[in-house]
Amino acid sequence: MNFFQKVWLIVWKDLVIELRTKEMLSAMFIFSLLVVIIFNFAFDPGMSYIKDVAPGILWVAITFAGTLGLNRSFINEQENGCLYGLMLAPIDRGAIYLGKFLGNLLFMLLIEIFLFPIFVVFFNLSVLQSLPLLLLIAFLATVGFAAVGTLLAGMAANTKTREILLPILFFPLVVPVIIAAVKSTGRVLNGDPMDQLAGWLQLLAAFDIIFLVVCFLTFEYVIEE
């Protein structure tokens, strides 16, 4: 099997386990749904300022649900020492990282697909025309989020305080992605011209590329003792 087939094998394994247990997806979905519902009661959807606060609400829900999922993503690897099982195999550490990253990315995108229509309905937003742009923002932000999150989840997995350690390490690093996602989503919802959006999209794309490369290269040192 070549490098990419082994990456896919790890993704397949995570998908099979998650579809069987639904532990990660159900926790992420319920949490993000609760956040949207609570904010829906806090802010009246009919108010004029709703387009200014809605992007923040959406990305708070996605960020915290994503962190919940990242914390769980290495639980399967910790049980029975499975991460060591992967490390014993003749497989590049980068392939393990990419496999876990793609799994996390898929699960987060899946949650966003279910959450977004609910969010739009709850906050009475009209997004049909700007949907392609919103999907692009969601994809770029989620790639950056999962890239950094997978590395740090792997690092935190070897510690006893992983539930605390992950957010402490993760949020400061991922803040540029969240800010860019909130700002660009706001611009799209307000119907701002494309030139005001381009800078944020470029920031997201640059962050994705840099962090994917850095995390891919450093994962080996993070998981080895």
Partner: peptide
Amino acid sequence: GVISHHVYLYNNLTAHENIVFFARLYN
């Protein structure tokens, strides 16, 4: 090949799926 205190097996895969998974990793 390593046999240790840790069994290196995924609880939520079947015995066959586990062994096929590792067999594929080992080409």
